[in-house]
Design a protein around this nucleic acid. Structure first.
Lengths: 229, 229
DNA sequence: GGAATACTATGACAAATGTCAGTTTAGGGA
DNA sequence: TCCCTAAACTGACATTTGTCATAGTATTCC
């Protein structure tokens, strides 16, 4: 297990790649590695973060509690993603909770290291900016999807998303296994509705399921469904 | 009408305030002022933008067309807001259309001026970053609202939003008058549903309406509605 | 191994929302 | 002014989705 940021492959996937050797050294010296068990939280909505989390392993759900008591999952973050950046940059408390869906391993980087680099290295700042621009674009897409598509379409889309972003295991099942409740919180619907639609998709041969695990069987038809037949 | 950026008050509200005098001078020399009539577009989804638009007057709706043919309005931008930044920064084509809801006056700033400053002035980059972080937080809130609240709650919220962000005229009506269709596209519902709920709110004394204009009558009750009674 | 607990599943029903069809109203030109 | 068109509105109905109740199934923890 490599523990120096300078040598960490994960870094290639996020904005830390724009850091200089010196800066990385400083980050590495100040960082701490944490292990988060499935179900535990990295941080909760409303927390003031004094650093960011760089995901080494596992998956975290970023969610927000609504007034009716339900969580909405806004994003699923895995290897290479940096969590908490927004909060650190705007110096506000975070608007999302981060909870481990898997067992996770993350590096905590204190905000001083980040802010320091932001001030001194324009390349790094630009890189962070580019990432944020990308996230914002994605968020717009989510808004349009949720408001203009039916639950069924969004379910289909969610499965395709899981396949494209987290891949499949050797047996062809989605590598990321979510509970039915988590799926419903990604899609933004009632758990029962999600379960019903999963049953329907199974019957129609679009997906297969064994226990919690779900596999995509007919990607083309799922895509057609998303686009509205 | 002041036409030098250095003296433009609008600038105080956006990231351009972090520019140096020299930089502002350069921006001012390269900018062009444009007048956009109600209903005309600043840019369309998919366009490659070669600059950003700084809103001086009027309001623009930022929307995205969904596969079912409906527009979803993601944001309403008014005086002081800068449009197209995301696209220019990530050098991708824009994912939103910007259409004038009012007659508008905007300054077009070529991307070279922006990119030039981004590279040389870390303060400016940080300022843009902060704005983007804010927008992203807002987008998350929209996602949660749309997916977890009923249409009625979102309608109530939309009216409060319009009041808080665009204010009221002398007679107590909302200063920004949107068509029923635009309202439904902000809320993410069918136009008929929006109209029905407006009628209901009128009957219950939550709002008043005269023609297209809508006034908020019982803010407290609207708020209670948003929070789920 | 077995009880306790959480998750998955299904039916029945109610509520919310969308769609279609048609009417009324308002505002902008000729 | 009056017409004409677009927008606002209303009703009836179908569909979608959520809620409640309940049962089956897996998982965990002693």
């Amino acid at each position: 297990m490599e523990s120096r940021c300078e040598n960490c492959i994960i870094r290639q996937f996020n904005s830390l790649r724009a850091m200089s050797k010196e800066e990385l050294k400083q980050v590495s010296d100040s960082k701490t590695v944490k292990t988060i068990k499935k179900g535990e939280s990295l941080f909760q909505e409303g927390d003031k973060l004094n650093g960011v989390y760089c995901v080494r392993n596992g998956v975290s759900k970023l969610s927000k509690l609504s007034s009716n008591g339900k969580d909405q999952i806004v994003k699923l973050a895995s290897k290479g993603e940096v969590l908490g950046q927004r909060s650190v940059i705007s110096e506000e408390s975070t608007n999302l909770s981060a909870i481990a869906v898997d067992d996770m391993e993350v590096c905590f980087i204190p905000k001083e290291s980040i802010n320091n680099t932001l001030q001194k290295n324009p390349n790094f700042t630009m890189e962070v900016l580019r990432h944020m621009a990308h996230d914002l674009k994605e968020a717009d897409d989510v808004i349009v999807n949720i408001s203009q598509k039916t639950v069924k379409q969004r379910m289909a889309e969610a499965f395709l998303y899981l396949k494209n972003n987290f891949g499949e295991d050797e047996e062809g099942y989605l590598a990321l296994t979510l509970s039915r409740e988590d799926i419903s919180n990604v899609v933004g619907t009632a758990t029962e509705s999600a379960i019903r639609i999963i049953s329907e998709f199974k019957k129609k041969g679009l997906i297969v399921a064994s226990g919690k695990r779900i596999g995509i069987k007919d990607e083309r038809k799922l895509l057609e469904l998303v686009e509205g037949f």
